[in-house]
């Protein structure tokens, strides 16, 4: 039996939380927003040609796995990332890694995750958690969404690690193994901000970044006419589920990102970043307002003036604000 002395801390976003908790285990105190910001996690993309749960894919974050990868490499932490073809091999590797005293982060699917709130158990494969020990066929898990540390059986763990569908995890596991004692995080912060600013305002593709928000806003106006009321409402619901549901800590990560900017302002001693954090916070509140009004539409309690046009206007305004913020940040 192995049970590492791993501190379970809840977090708003699973991957940033896992990254932060793993580094914390080695004494590198990086908060969750910090991990998210350095990992350049913030993003937006709307992909109408890809369907998930019968609705277009909307994403508020970068590709799964990017946050850990970027954050560790920016911080000069050496890490291993593995995917597997064989289930047995993946579990053997997990056990041997735990045996050598290393807690392991992994990407899993949520449908078969037994300790997950049932309402969240959809075929969603981008969840992350940490396994920090095992006793025969029981594994000890720290899941940032769940209040307390939990356990999972060998068979269930295999099932969630090899869940199928979009972004299938293929047994993906990762861990930092060489963590420097002290790290100057200032260059990492600047590089993270630069990367995010580029992702949001520097990619000339209409589906991603602030252009993507505008594109979604334009599409939203036509939903009711094109698809009818029920489907339009479902599509809207899907956007909101992506924005508010599992692990965004609210407003599609905009709160976490603002918290990162606020913390960075302290670390770098730049009042300018504090200003940006405030603007991001206001912006995040607007996103929450959008999802709040949108949810009234989903339960058919919207007032007549709370139409798709109004929601689209709100989105358009959000895009404008974010464009301003990230243009300023990219010039920093």
């Amino acid at each position: 039996m192995i049970k590492l002395n791993f501190e379970h801390r809840q977090a708003g976003h699973c991957e940033s939380g896992v990254t932060s908790n793993l580094l914390n285990y080695y004494g590198l105190k990086i908060s969750e927003p910090m991990a998210f910001g350095i990992g350049a996690g913030l993003f937006f993309s709307y992909l109408p040609f890809l369907k998930m749960q019968h609705a277009p894919v909307t994403s508020f974050r970068v590709w799964p796995g990017m946050v850990f990868k970027r954050a560790t490499s920016e911080l000069g932490v050496k890490s291993g990332i593995f995917t597997f073809r064989s289930k047995k091999e993946s579990m053997d590797k997990l056990k041997s890694t735990l045996d050598s005293g290393i807690p392991v982060g992994m990407q899993v699917g949520t449908f078969h995750l037994p300790f997950f709130p049932p309402e969240y158990r959809m075929h969603y494969n981008m969840h992350n958690m940490v396994v920090y020990g095992y006793d025969h066929d029981t594994f000890f898990v720290s899941d940032t969404l769940v209040e307390k540390p939990v356990e999972i059986s060998y068979d269930d763990l295999v099932r969630v690690r090899f869940a199928q569908g979009t972004f299938a995890p293929r047994g993906r596991m990762y861990y930092p193994y060489d963590v420097p004692e002290s790290v100057d995080i200032r260059p990492a912060i600047l590089s993270g901000i630069k990367k995010t600013a580029h992702n949001m305002v520097g990619i000339p593709i209409p589906l991603v970044g602030v252009n993507g928000i505008r594109y979604l806003s334009r599409q939203m106006r036509t939903w009711e006419k094109r698809y009818g009321e029920a489907k339009a409402s479902y599509y809207l619901g899907q956007v909101l589920r992506m924005e508010e549901e599992i692990g965004t800590a609210g407003a599609g990560f905009r709160f976490i990102y603002g918290a990162f900017l606020e913390e960075s302002a302290e670390v770098l001693n730049k009042p300018f970043l504090r200003e940006m954090a405030e603007e991001m916070g206001e912006n995040a509140n607007k996103w929450r307002e959008f999802s709040y009004l949108g949810s009234r539409n989903c339960k058919k309690r919207a007032k007549p003036e709370e139409s798709y046009d109004m929601l689209a206007d709100m989105l358009y305004a959000c895009a404008g604000r974010e464009e301003k913020i990230f243009k300023k940040l990219s010039r920093m």
């Binding site: 809840q10 977090a11 969404l145 609210g250 709160f255 976490i256 916070g281 509140n285």
Partner: peptide
């Protein structure tokens, strides 16, 4: 229970 962030001008995040 889950973790949520919020923001207002006085207290920050």
């Amino acid at each position: 229970r889950e973790v949520f962030y919020s923001f207002n001008k006085e207290t920050g995040f």
